[in-house]
Amino acid sequence: MRPYYILSGSIISKDSDSLLIKKDEGEINLPIEGIDSIFIFGNTTLTSPALNILGKRGIPVFIYSFNGNYITSIIPENYLESGFVLVKQVACYLDNRRRIQLAKKFVEGAAINMNKTLKRFGAKGIEIPIDKINSSSSVQELMGVEGKINDEYFEQIDSVLPENFRIKIRGRRPPSNMGNALISFGNSLVYSFVASEIYGTHLNPTVSFLHEPGSQRSSLALDVSEIFKPLYSHTVSISLIKRKIIKETDFVNSDGTFLNDSGRRKFLAEFDSKLMETYYVNKLKRKVTYKRIIRLELYKIEKYIVENTEYKPFSPRRW
């Protein structure tokens, strides 16, 4: 099973046990058994019968604006809720020692994977301030350390990018240039995939540890995304630039810089290909997709919360 991406100008309706996607250029019959999530970009109509079958099959829908900004998600109600795990998760959040211990692991894991990505593209690695991470006494102090790590990291990314694609200053709302547009689009995809995988576990998406729990977004997905953004979002962005697949004509300037329809198609194709690559997991003694790695990471976090076992963030042996 895999995700399915729908760009603007479509009408999605139900056709027996399938989805019927109508576009100007024709119709596509999409068997429901072959997908585990749907990503919609731009103006698309989703009928009630289609929503009904998606809900019954437990398939989440993630909705983005035409510019690629994440808007909201439609999550099935029948995900694996567990009162027992919720109580444990909230207790872990309220225990400052355990909360910050887990938050530190997210920051450290992200930094390690940043270096994996930098090494992949021949950039100088960053010095990970382990002492400052470990000595942080509050989440606010830890996020300050994380911010400095990110600044140095993106500076090193720029060292291997052509001038017109350099990130310079990380700008998100809205992205200020083409480099930022790629990173922001990729990060939003990582967030959505992590959010989707959370609903396959007993974890509650609203109780987080590094980011403060909010009233709207899945703040736990923000936490876990930190580990995977360098590997998935940033690797894809840099690769598309260096292989000259993404060009200046793949962007539009409209109160910021965003990927246009052509650019999104290129990014989604590369991103999907990356997620479907496989990685050998020693503990399982078999290969799994990088998409599945996200679910396995969440199981590890759930085990830390429930059983108080040691948690070690995912980092590939080779990248």
Results as ranks from 00 to 15, higher is better:
Y5Q: 07
S10C: 14
I11D: 08
I12L: 11
S13F: 01
S13C: 03
S16E: 14
K22C: 07
K23F: 11
I28L: 14
N29P: 00
P31C: 10
I32R: 05
F39K: 11
G42K: 06
L46N: 04
L51P: 11
L54C: 10
S65F: 05
F66P: 12
N67S: 10
S73G: 06
I74K: 11
V87N: 08
A91M: 13
N96S: 13
R98S: 11
V107Q: 10
G109E: 09
A111Y: 03
N113F: 05
L118N: 02
R120H: 12
I126A: 02
S138Y: 00
E141I: 13
D151E: 14
V160E: 11
R166C: 11
K168R: 15
K168A: 09
I169L: 12
P174C: 10
I183Q: 00
Y191T: 04
S192Q: 00
V194H: 07
E197S: 09
G200V: 03
T201F: 09
L203T: 05
L203E: 10
T206K: 15
V207E: 01
S208N: 09
S208I: 07
H211S: 11
E212Y: 09
G214V: 03
S219C: 00
S219G: 09
V224P: 05
V224C: 07
F228L: 12
F228C: 12
H234W: 12
V236R: 07
R243H: 02
E248A: 15
F251E: 01
L259A: 07
R264H: 06
K266S: 12
L268C: 07
L268E: 12
A269R: 14
K283S: 15
L284G: 13
L284T: 15
K287W: 01
T289C: 09
Y290R: 15
I293L: 15
I293F: 00
L296S: 00
E307H: 12
E310L: 12
E310Q: 07
Y311F: 15
P316L: 11
R318L: 15
